[in-house]
Computed example of a mutant assay.
Amino acid sequence: MKKNNQKLYGYQTTNRAKHNLKVHLILVCKYRKKLLVRGVETDTKNIIRDIESNSDFDIIEMETDKDHIHLMIQYIPRVSISAIVNRIKSISTKRIWKIHQQFLQKHFWKEKTFWTDGYFVCSIGEANPETIRNYIANQG
């Protein structure tokens, strides 16, 4: 998706499609524990940026709170949101545990987990829905 190491956040072209797919994604720490503190938040962001660099999606914006992270992601049609989420969660959990094992063992003494099973995702559009509705209604 990246072109000449330049992030393009407008319309993208792949094969026979032109698209601009963006979502707001929220990942929450398991049991809403406040784990994104004491350097864990910075390492988590760096890990997710590294995952992005080897994936078919771009992170437009990313910020953490103590128990969750918000991401605005642009992706291409052949990649599903669930695949993006699974990739981010699985890789980041393993890497965060490697770096912060002592801290995380205090919170999860039986399992090596970090994120909840679920996630929040919402598509975001560039146009007002009413504008699109009127455009479609006035065709022909």
Rank of each mutant, 00 (worst) to 15 (best):
R95K: 11
M72E: 02
I60D: 12
Q101S: 10
I51N: 06
C29E: 11
Q105H: 07
L71G: 03
S123W: 07
I47V: 07
L104M: 01
L36T: 10
N5D: 15
K45N: 06
V85P: 03
Y135V: 03
I124S: 05
K110D: 05
F103T: 07
P77N: 06
H24V: 10
N128L: 08
Q74C: 00
D67Q: 05
K112R: 11
I48L: 08
F108R: 09
V23F: 14
H70G: 09
I51W: 07
P77Q: 05
E61P: 00
V37C: 11
S80H: 13
M72S: 04
H19R: 04
N20V: 08
T44L: 15
D43N: 12
R49D: 03
I96H: 07
H19Y: 13
A137T: 03
T42G: 01
K98A: 07
D117L: 03
T116G: 02
L8D: 15
A127W: 02
H70E: 11
L21T: 00
Q101M: 03
R38A: 12
D117V: 04
H19Q: 07
I99K: 13
D117H: 11
S82I: 12
K33F: 15
T113V: 12
R95W: 01
K18T: 15
K112P: 02
I59Y: 06
S123H: 11
L104R: 03
D65R: 11
N128Q: 06
Y9D: 10
V121L: 02
Y75K: 10
E61T: 09
R133W: 09
A137G: 04
K110F: 02
F120Y: 13
A137D: 10
A83S: 14
F108I: 06
S82F: 05
I59A: 03
R133Y: 11
T131E: 07
Q105G: 00
L8Y: 15
T64R: 03
D56V: 01
D56L: 13
M1V: 15
E61G: 01
L25Y: 06
L25H: 04
V40C: 12
G39T: 09
K45F: 06
S90V: 01
V40H: 04
F57V: 03
P129R: 04
L25S: 07
H100P: 03
E111V: 04
I60A: 12
A137W: 01
L27E: 03
V40I: 15
N46K: 13
T93M: 02
N15R: 13
K7L: 11
L35I: 14
